[in-house]
């Protein structure tokens, strides 16, 4: 564990907490894409299939449980909690899951490190995570008005990806045989998807203005 990996995990954790805070205390999920949240449930469920079979550390197992539990509870809140569900932008959040999942399934079957069930599922989760934010970015683009918590949520998620890239660079130079092209390329694609959002986030921060995306 290096400082970049820890910073990445902590920003990831913070992003989830910010979203839960918004949903749990303000009872609002306005501007939050249920499609993206459901894709994250699938990402974590397929990636952490090994939670009972491979043990790395208490830290890892605990974080896996937190990410699984929080993503499930966010989707539960948005679907079944009456007050929260009322605030959901259903008409705007129209992205189709299969449009993203199908190419990821095919790609995972074609390109993987090992052709085993767990490994293909793990690889699928990497590909899907790379594009899971797209419905959220489309929703932002459509609603344009972004409240502070939603903006911070996406900013922290993007930060998590950025720190993971630094972690890979660090591990590549400090650990022998640490080469994982699939993880790196899908991670890089994922981070690049945030670039546009980051640009406008920093612009609004610099000018001390409310974040607003161009039409």
């Amino acid at each position: 564990m290096n400082i970049f990996r820890l910073a990445g995990d902590m920003t990831h954790l913070a992003s989830v907490l910010v979203l839960l805070l918004k949903i749990h205390t303000i009872k609002s999920c306005a501007g939050v894409s249920l499609k993206t949240q459901e894709l994250y449930v699938i990402v974590f469920a397929t990636r952490y299939l090994d939670i009972f079979t491979s043990f790395v550390s208490i830290y890892n197992s605990l974080m896996k449980l937190i990410f699984l539990g929080s993503s499930f509870s966010i989707v539960w809140y948005m679907r079944y909690h009456k007050a929260v569900h009322r605030t959901y932008d259903r008409e705007q959040d129209t992205f189709r899951h299969w449009f993203l999942m199908l190419p990821c399934i095919l790609l995972a079957l074609l390109i993987h490190e090992k052709f085993t069930f767990f490994e293909v599922m793990w690889t699928f989760s990497l590909y899907l995570e790379a594009v899971a934010i797209l419905p959220q970015l489309v929703l932002l683009q459509r609603t344009r008005n972004i409240d502070n918590l939603t903006g911070q949520y996406i900013f922290l998620l993007g930060g998590y990806r950025g720190f993971y890239i630094l972690n890979w660079i660090y591990r590549y130079f400090t650990e022998p045989h640490y080469v994982h092209w699939i993880t790196w390329i899908s991670g890089l694609v994922q981070t690049l998807l945030y670039a546009d959002f980051f640009y406008y986030y920093f612009l609004s921060w610099k000018n001390n203005k409310k974040l607003q995306l161009p039409a």
Binding site: V56, N60, M63, K64, F67, W122, N167, T183
Partner: peptide
């Protein structure tokens, strides 16, 4: 899985 370093990440 020590043979696959990416699996110790989240």
């Amino acid at each position: 899985d020590s043979a696959n370093g990416s699996h110790d990440e989240l």
